[in-house]
């Protein structure tokens, strides 16, 4: 029972991270029907900016004095950086191909994914970069026998805040309404005066901001980042998006949580060396039996 609870806690943490990445996939897919392969690399870039910020502050002696400020700065800078990266990516690789075939667009995205991950490798080296987590990983408490670290709480609460923020943005603001409209019908919304290109860019930016936050969270959780860390989580998050029903925000969060849980439980109870396989198996099973995903039916509702 205790291990069960413990796995539950770990699964929720991991699931929250997958959910954040999956949101970016699902939003971009919803609006331009593109699997943004470079999304995993944006997530990794966020992790790198986090570690760069933290080690800079540490080397200047600021981090020991103000650890919370350091954390806030790391998140903020990573999110800003990835927003700029996303705009550059969309301008360079996706906008010129707006009218091209789906295959061209996918290949362009794949090229950018390879380009970014190798670029990060050349910039920051092939080895893991360690987060200065000794400052943060001290606190923990127990609930019914399961150990919950403060980091896990931060990650879960942080992800929750971002998801609520996204929900408010999409449903309550004019830009959010523009996004929903463009996702539903690009031509019609353009006729009504919505700037499609701008809306698409904003979608990319929001997805990337969430991925950047997830990158810093993963860095804090595992204690290090690597240039190719975006590859596997990227596929899993996409599996989560498909599981939830692609284009559906609530579905992406739900899918992320399920994938996180399944991975942790499978690693704990079945075979840990095969933990990466389960997400793919779920993906294939979903495509077999319910290709629209869990929330697939109410696509019109919260589709972005």
């Amino acid at each position: 029972m205790e291990t069960f609870l413990q796995q539950m806690v770990n699964g929720l943490t991991l699931g929250a991270v997958y959910a954040l990445i999956a949101l970016g996939y699902t939003m971009v897919y919803g609006i331009i029907q593109l699997i943004n392969f470079a999304h995993g690399e944006i997530f990794a870039a966020g992790g790198y900016i986090g570690v760069i910020t933290l080690s800079f502050l540490q080397s200047r002696g600021v981090l020991e004095a103000h650890p919370t400020l350091g954390l806030v700065l790391a998140f903020a800078l990573a999110m800003v950086y990835c927003a700029f990266l996303a705009v550059a990516l969309e301008r360079m690789a996706y906008r010129p191909l707006r009218d091209a075939s789906r295959l061209s667009l996918l290949l362009s995205a794949l090229g950018m994914s390879i380009f970014f991950s190798n670029g990060m490798m050349l910039c920051q080296g092939v080895y893991d970069k360690a987060y200065p987590i000794q400052l943060y990983s001290t606190g923990q408490f127990t609930v019914g026998g399961a150990v919950v670290s403060y980091i896990q709480v931060y990650i879960f609460v942080g992800a929750l805040i971002l998801m609520i923020g996204l929900n408010l943005f999409v449903n309550r603001t004019r830009l959010g309404k523009a996004m929903r409209a463009t996702a539903q019908d690009k031509v019609m919304s353009a006729l009504l005066g919505i700037n499609a290109n701008r809306t698409i860019t904003i979608t990319f930016v929001i997805g990337s901001v969430l991925a950047a936050a997830a990158g810093v969270m993963v860095g804090l959780y595992y204690g290090s980042v690597r240039f190719d860390m975006g590859f596997i989580p990227g596929i899993k998050a996409f599996a989560a998006a498909v599981l939830g029903g692609i284009g559906n925000l609530t579905g992406a969060v739900l899918g992320g949580m399920i994938i996180g849980m399944v991975e942790v439980f499978a690693a704990g109870y079945l075979a840990s060396e095969y933990k990466d396989v389960f997400a793919f198996i779920i993906l294939i099973l979903v495509l077999y039996f319910r290709p629209t995903g869990i929330m697939g039916e109410q696509v019109d509702d919260t589709r972005v």
Binding site: I235, Y274, D276, V277, F280, I284, L287, P291
Partner: peptide, 24 residues
């Protein structure tokens, strides 16, 4: 299972399949 879907699901499933083979 995947070819019944639109083409772009195939991309991600094959990506996953490649990884499964390697992990196995």
């Amino acid at each position: 299972p995947t070819l019944k879907m639109r083409g772009d699901y195939l991309a991600i499933v094959t990506l996953g399949f490649g990884e499964i083979i390697r992990i196995v």
